[in-house]
Design a protein around this nucleic acid. Structure first.
Length: 483
DNA sequence: ATGTAC
């Protein structure tokens, strides 16, 4: 039986242990229910959890969230924290789309106010936000100097150029700027790819979605987040585009050499890494911070175009639409954070790859307004179902380095999804469900069909039951633009 | 995820 393959032990209904064995420094912990655990074992992602547990300096556990699936080296849905002196940093532990993340906007609009204008709204959004592989903006071509300012300052750069307000910055993880970014460590090729892609969506599961608050699970916290039943919301899911991809690619080559240089034994070349404190490690983190800042700026520029689109399509002023940020949080990043390990406060390098930071109430790094409720956690589902807003918990802080899941997680490969949807018109099917979709490519639509994903409700159920997040509201889609 | 292999 596959259950024996990794000698998995049940901890409780929502947690499973992969015991230490062979070269593992720590055990693996998987967050899932029994049914999900079976699904998870259909790919090699648990072997990847084990591989990560073998890396030097890993602290406490190699963690897997319920949306885990196979990724480059590290699993997507994996969390791993490393000692800053004895541990490593790995580009594979962050992923190609550095600081891919989610931003949630709320509006002062009620569902009834836009229901008859969705066609115009979705067309305007699609016209204003370039979507698809290789998409670029003709109205925002950065000089190399200006692009370096973007990489250094992140969302703050965008606001300084008139894309949004200073208040927006308060509601972004790290205020939209990771410290230590050094644009001189970003290759010319990466800079070239990034010059015309700021304010673009990209492809795959990236999207901008207009929806409404369909369920409220905690009225009080929802009020603090400014979310009311039937209130219109916008979810933006995108990352650092070609620039982030290129930074990752460039540093994978650096890290292959570094792994040899520092005698780090790798069970998989894709885990290539360097000591956190080595030259190579520091340089990767400084370049990664640039890509992370590009992603924050990207979501900020897109927010500007969301505001413009609402104004244009609905013929209303910014005062009337009242589009403001609830929060913006990444799910592909490595960060220095303080955590309690064995009763001692320690600075760790936490890798979250397809995992969302979920800091508890009163943590110093969350906005003042949310101090009493915890950090908002934004979990997008697939196109046809729904998304969730959760908050971080004390248990997440103590058990998962302040982390939770990031989305539904695939159950079908892109190829499988394409084959299994032959002859179907996905846009028509969604329209019949009351969801208008505009996509750059038909291929993307079939690859992103609902059935290709786990049910996000089940994924969120696991992290809620395990206590590493608290469910606050559900959002249902009305219209969506995709790559 | 990605000018889906320079």
């Amino acid at each position: 039986m596959t259950d024996d393959k990794y000698k998995i032990q049940k901890i409780d209904d929502y947690r499973w242990r992969i015991p230490r064995e062979g070269k593992m420094h720590v055990e693996g912990i998987v967050y899932a229910d029994e049914h999900m655990l079976k699904e998870i074992q259909k790919d090699e992602s648990l072997q990847q959890v084990i591989n990560v547990a073998c890396l030097p300096g890993i602290i406490r556990h190699s963690l897997a969230m319920p949306d885990i699936h196979w990724g480059y080296g590290f699993p997507i849905g994996g969390v791993a924290a490393f000692d800053v002196d004895e541990g490593v940093v790995s580009p594979g532990g962050v992923g190609y789309d550095i600081n891919c993340g989610v931003r949630l906007l709320r509006t002062g609009l009620h569902r009834i106010e836009i229901i008859n204008k969705l066609e115009s709204l979705v067309n305007t959004l699609f016209a204003n936000i370039p979507s698809g592989v290789g998409s670029h903006r003709r109205d925002l071509k950065l000089s190399q100097q200006e692009e370096k300012n973007v990489l250094r300052d992140g969302a703050r750069w965008a606001v300084s150029q008139g894309y949004g307000t200073k208040e927006d910055l308060e509601y972004i993880e790290e205020k939209g700027c990771i410290r230590g970014a050094d644009p001189e460590l970003v290759s010319d090729r990466a800079l070239e790819r990034g010059r015309t892609q700021l304010g673009t969506l990209g492809s795959g599961n990236h999207f901008v979605e207009v929806g409404y608050v369909s369920e409220i699970y905690d009225e009080e916290i929802a009020r603090v987040l400014g979310l009311e039943r039937d209130g219109i919301t916008i979810v933006v899911h995108t990352g650092s585009r070609g620039l982030g991809y290129q930074v990752c690619d460039d540093f994978l080559k650096v890290m292959i050499n570094a792994s040899r240089k520092y005698n780090i034994e790798l069970s998989d070349r894709q885990l290539c890494c360097a000591p956190v404190n080595s030259q190579e490690g520091k340089e990767y983190l400084a370049a990664m911070a640039c890509a992370a800042n590009y992603a924050f700026a990207n979501r900020q520029v897109i927010t500007h175009w969301v505001r413009e689109s609402f104004g244009g399509a609905l013929h209303i002023s910014p005062k009337e639409s009242q589009i403001s940020l609830v929060y913006d949080v990444g799910h592909n990043i490595a960060k220095f954070e303080e955590h309690i390990v064995g009763g001692e406060k320690r600075r760790l390098c936490v890798h979250r790859k397809g995992a969302t930071r979920a800091f508890p109430p009163h943590h110093p790094n969350i906005p003042d307004v949310y101090k009493s409720v915890g950090q908002p956690v934004l979990i997008p589902g697939d196109m046809g179902r729904c998304s969730y807003v959760l908050v971080g918990t004390e248990k997440a802080y103590t058990d998962t380095f302040g982390s939770t899941c990031h989305g539904a997680g695939r159950v079908m490969s892109r190829g499988q999804a394409t084959r299994s949807t032959k002859g179907r018109n996905i846009a028509e099917e969604l329209k019949a469900k009351g969801i208008l979709v505009r996509a750059d490519s038909r291929a993307t639509l079939v690859e992103e069909v609902s059935e290709a994903y786990k049910d996000v409700t089940e994924v969120v159920g696991v992290v809620e039951h395990a206590g590493i997040s608290k469910k606050i509201v559900q959002l249902k889609p009305m219209c969506v633009i995709k790559g």
